[in-house]
Simulated assay, not measured.
Amino acid sequence: MTKKILMLVLLLAPMSLFAQKFAHFSYADVMQSLPDYRKANEELQTIYKQYEKDLTDMQNELKTKYEKYQKEVNESTPPQVVERKQQEINDLQQRLQQADEANTKAFQEEQQKKMQPIIQRIINTVKEVAKEGGYVYLLDVASSQNAGVFINESISEDVTKKIMNKLGITEADIAAGKAAAAAAQGNQ
């Protein structure tokens, strides 16, 4: 009797694995298709370009001051003048470094502020789709591959469209997302 129960359990265990539902999606496709993401990304690019311009202006000013210093300073220049000009250059270098650090920090904070609500919205939607579909695992394809986990897509359902539908993403949004992604890759 015990052997029969054990055999039954051993036979049914693998079958219960087949009853589990697995799904996968493309986080990148979902993210790029969201109009909110594209808008936030454009705003961040504008901020980044302004920070970059400010730093470039400061670098050019530093370069100009240094070249002027090299032309004006010679053996007959009084030591106080040489010291003052060197101090001006050092001060400008420090300001440049501080501006770079401040810009980096400000950009990261702005990025966090703009992207976190979008990311959270996607996470919540993925959880909803997983719960509604009764999926045991719902994995992002790219993240899984980066972590060394490969998805057998023939036995896993692609729920990217379901997630996009729940987020209100239209075909036009998908096309705009693909165009923006292609343009961004072309700029690199």
Rank of each mutant, 00 (worst) to 15 (best):
L62D: 00
Y69N: 05
S16Y: 08
E52F: 15
G177C: 12
A102E: 14
D100C: 02
A147D: 05
A40Y: 04
D140V: 02
N165D: 12
Q112W: 08
G148W: 00
M15F: 09
K49W: 14
D29P: 03
I119C: 05
L6W: 14
L11H: 02
E132C: 11
M164H: 05
A176I: 02
A176T: 09
A175W: 01
T170V: 05
A180N: 10
S26C: 05
M115Q: 13
S144C: 08
Q20A: 07
D57E: 14
Q116N: 04
K166S: 04
S143V: 00
Q87N: 13
A175D: 11
Q86G: 07
K105D: 15
E153C: 06
N41L: 09
Q20T: 01
A106V: 05
V81T: 09
V9P: 02
K3H: 05
L139M: 12
I123E: 11
L44I: 04
K162G: 07
K162M: 02
Q145V: 10
A147T: 00
K178S: 11
L92R: 03
K53N: 11
V129K: 01
T56F: 15
K4S: 10
R38Q: 12
D140A: 06
R38K: 06
D57P: 09
L11E: 08
G177H: 08
A183R: 12
I89H: 00
K71H: 01
A175L: 01
T56H: 15
I89Y: 00
V30M: 05
M1F: 01
Y51H: 11
Q112Y: 11
D36N: 09
D140Y: 01
F22D: 10
Y27Q: 05
Q32I: 04
G168D: 10
V81A: 10
M31N: 10
K131V: 09
A106W: 03
S76Q: 01
V159C: 09
D173L: 10
Q80C: 01
Q97L: 13
D91Y: 11
V141S: 06
A13Q: 15
Q94F: 03
L6A: 13
E72P: 09
A182N: 12
V159F: 08
